[in-house]
Design a protein around this nucleic acid. Structure first.
Length: 691
RNA sequence: GCCGCUGUAGCUCAGUGGUAGAGCGCACCCUUGGUAAGGGUGAGGUCGCGGGUUCAAGUCCCGCCAGCGGCUCCA
């Protein structure tokens, strides 16, 4: 006698076990028609699930009752489409062995092992999609059946699929006492797959799908294991939704900082200079310099002092800090002294000997610095320190070098040389809380000024069961409490993540969501008990005893390269006035107005604005098009009508129409104010009424 | 680093065994104009690099370099 509670709280009682589909039918034919699955006690399940005891049931349809697309419905759809794609691929490439095919937020993939002599190519997509379309058109039902473990294993062994056997073994290990299979159609007759489900009722529900791309993966993510081909696809209930998805991808591509970086001439990567090495062009450098000057000003207010350090240091320094040879693989190969090289070569040292010595850290030379902290520590340690001197806050836009794997490099966001807006704070234990709070405040100001208001905070705490952490547990407790408290004071989403601390101390990471919803880890604040110990740092306390200072590493932007890369995408290249490489471009209507236009440019430049003149022989329309494509905040059209009134006709980026005429002096004042105030008040706010 | 794809003019791309192309950009000329491209002419390429096959290679094969999509990694 199952009693079934529906989402509205009503209860339906049945004489005997029923399927979710039957319940849906009892509610209404249209609901049953629209149903793609259900949630039984909150758990996503097939529509054909038999309900034989009391439970809560929600019927899943394409859209939630509020009218939004239901993520569960898409999950079912994509999981099902993965089966259809796998069937199509196996038909086209006999011998292809299926591994694992889960749904994703934006689609799904299927990892497949292809025969060596028949890899999958992008050219196969058309045939796969055609085959998929056929399967969808047949509207075959997804039919679940279960077997006891031994029978199911016997079946899989008979089919000889080592990957599916492995999946089944994992399921058993996780506690399953039965194995479930899904036939796309009739079991024993149609294509089927070991799968825990659930699925939509039939292939006919798949409204629109697309095979997207190929990638490679490893079995179990292990690079020493089998190499698999990952086939990505996506599916939606309607063609319209798929089209919208493709549009979004296209939009994201237009925002891509690598595409915009070229188009807007912000940075350049040159083959001959090297992979992952960013050349900041004049335009990009404006953005970087504005950011540096601004954050530098904030730091001065907060009691930081600037330091400058070389880009290299002796290997011994990094042996003390622990970076070498432990992280040797992610560093550039050390720079060796001539004398050292000739000495070891005289001793008969071979290349492989040298390589081994390097692995052991047993060589002499210099390292391109992978981090700034050791240099800053040496500055701290260059003179005796009293407790009265603390905290000492040393800041530097410090350039570091890391040997990222070539496949990891990506535009400005993953590079081999980058500049950290770094600082190291040396303080007493009792000052940690306040210093951390100060760092967080700075990060918050930075993000909010740039409109990166959607961010969350991850507080990495130590794993209480692990012994890998340095320092006194009681001190850790205090530092963790300080981080936790400071983070929660910020009023953003905070998550505590035990086990995510660095081995040397707890850390706070800022994860920013950009305007298209992608998350980026940018700013970070880390408490460090390790390096002060390794370098035996001390200060003299009020008790005239030596005490160990605590270090805080912090970088609100992270790296300038990554930060600017993210900003390019965040603003889609349309930077706010104060960051714009070219803030105002003056467009004379014809040559006759060139003189006045030059005067306008001069006035703007005098006011500290970055202004240029477009005196090409294009017509105004052409100049506007060109200026708009460069995403310049203000285009000033000037013709005889403006010259006569000593005025300018203002066109702001993103506005469909021009804002109208404004006296030149007023525009200069308003733009200068917008620049200084970082956009708090804009020129538009100062336009005469009626705009 | 691994797998797959790609590499042709400054940019975006067409050309798949037989004399290197287009659009945009650039230069010059005409046009002197009022809010997202007026018209014309022209310059510009060892087809990523190195080998090979062929009477003939941008095109086919091999190696390398770089970019892209992933995987793995990220102090």
């Amino acid at each position: 006698m199952p009693r079934i509670t529906l989402p509205d709280g009503s209860v339906k009682e049945f004489e005997s076990p029923v399927t979710a589909r039957q319940v849906a039918e009892s509610i209404g034919a249209r609901l049953a028609q629209a149903a793609v699955g259900c949630r039984v006690d909150g758990e996503l399940a097939d529509l054909g699930t038999v309900l034989d005891r009391d439970c809560s049931l929600a019927i899943v349809t394409e859209k939630t009752r509020a009218g939004d697309p239901d993520p569960d419905a898409l999950f079912l759809l994509r999981h099902s489409t993965a089966h259809v794609m796998a069937e199509a691929i196996q038909r086209i490439v006999p011998g292809a062995q299926l591994v694992y095919g889960p749904p994703l937020d934006t689609g799904f993939y299927y990892d497949i092992a292809f025969p060596e002599d028949r890899p999958l190519k992008e050219g196969d997509f058309e045939a796969i999609e055609a085959e998929m379309a056929r399967i969808v058109k047949n509207d075959r039902p997804f039919t679940r059946y279960e077997l006891p473990v031994d029978e199911g294993m016997a079946k899989l062994k008979g089919e000889g699929s080592k990957y599916k056997i492995d999946n089944a073994e994992q399921a058993v290990k996780a506690g399953s006492d039965r194995l479930s299979f899904y036939a796309t159609g009739e079991p024993g007759k149609d294509w089927e797959d070991l799968c825990r489900g659930p699925h939509v009722p039939g292939t006919g529900r798949i409204g629109a799908f697309k095979v997207m791309s190929l990638a490679s993966s490893y079995w179990h993510g292990d690079e020493n294991s089998d190499r698999l081909t990952r086939v990505y696809g996506t599916a939606f209930f309607s063609k319209k939704d798929l089209d919208a998805h493709m549009m979004r991808i296209e939009e994201a591509r237009k925002r891509d900082h690598r595409v915009l970086g070229r188009k807007l001439q912000l940075f350049h990567i040159d083959e001959q200079v090297g992979q992952g090495l960013i050349l900041w062009t004049p335009r990009g450098s404006v953005i970087r310099k504005e950011l540096q000057d601004w954050i530098g000003g904030e730091l001065r207010k907060m009691g930081y002092t600037d330091v400058y350090c070389p880009h290299i240091g002796k290997l011994d320094l990094y042996k003390t800090s622990g970076h070498f040879p432990y992280y040797a693989e992610s560093q550039f190969v050390p720079v060796m002294e001539r004398d050292f090289l000739s000495k070891v070569s005289d001793e008969g040292c071979s290349c492989s000997d040298l390589s081994n010595m390097m692995g052991e850290g047993d060589i002499e030379g210099y390292l391109l610095k992978p981090m700034n902290c050791p240099h800053h520590i040496k500055i701290f340690d260059s003179q005796p320190r009293s407790y009265r001197d603390l905290p000492i806050r040393l800041s530097e836009f410090g350039t570091v070098y890391r040997w990222e794997q070539s496949g990891e490099l990506n535009g400005m966001t993953r590079v081999r040389c980058f500049t950290v807006d770094d600082a190291h704070l040396f303080c007493r234990e009792d000052q940690v809380g306040e210093e951390v709070r100060g760092c967080l405040k700075l990060v918050k100001i930075a993000f909010e000024t740039l409109g990166l208001t959607d961010f969350r905070i991850r507080v990495g705490l130590r794993d209480p069961d692990s012994s890998k952490y340095v320092g006194d547990p009681a001190v850790w407790d205090k530092a963790e409490a300080a981080c936790r408290e400071a983070a929660s004071e910020l009023g953003a989403k905070v998550s505590m993540e035990p086990g995510e601390a660095a081995f040397y101390g707890p850390k706070i990471d800022f994860v920013v969501k950009d305007v298209i919803g992608r998350e980026w880890q940018l700013g970070t604040v880390q408490v460090d008990y390790n390096l002060p110990q390794r370098f035996d740092l001390s200060y003299v306390g009020a008790d005239n005893q030596r005490h160990r200072p605590v270090m805080i590493h912090r970088a609100p932007f992270g790296s300038l390269e990554r930060f600017v890369g993210v900003l390019i995408e965040h603003f889609a290249g349309a930077f706010p006035l104060w960051l714009s490489p070219e803030q105002v471009r003056v467009l004379p209507i014809s040559e006759k107005s060139n003189d006045y236009a030059k005067e306008v440019v001069a006035k703007l430049t005098e006011a500290g604005l970055r202004a240029t003149l477009d005196d090409s022989d294009n017509r105004v329309q052409g100049k506007i098009k060109a200026g708009s494509e460069m995403k310049i905040p203000y285009l000033l059209v000037v013709g005889p009508r403006d010259a006569e009134n000593r005025a300018v006709s203002v066109r702001a980026f993103g506005e469909e129409k021009d804002l109208g005429q404004m006296p030149l002096e007023d525009f200069v004042a308003a733009a200068a104010e917008e620049h200084r105030g970082k956009g708090k008040v804009t020129v538009k706010d100062r336009m005469p009424a009626g705009v």
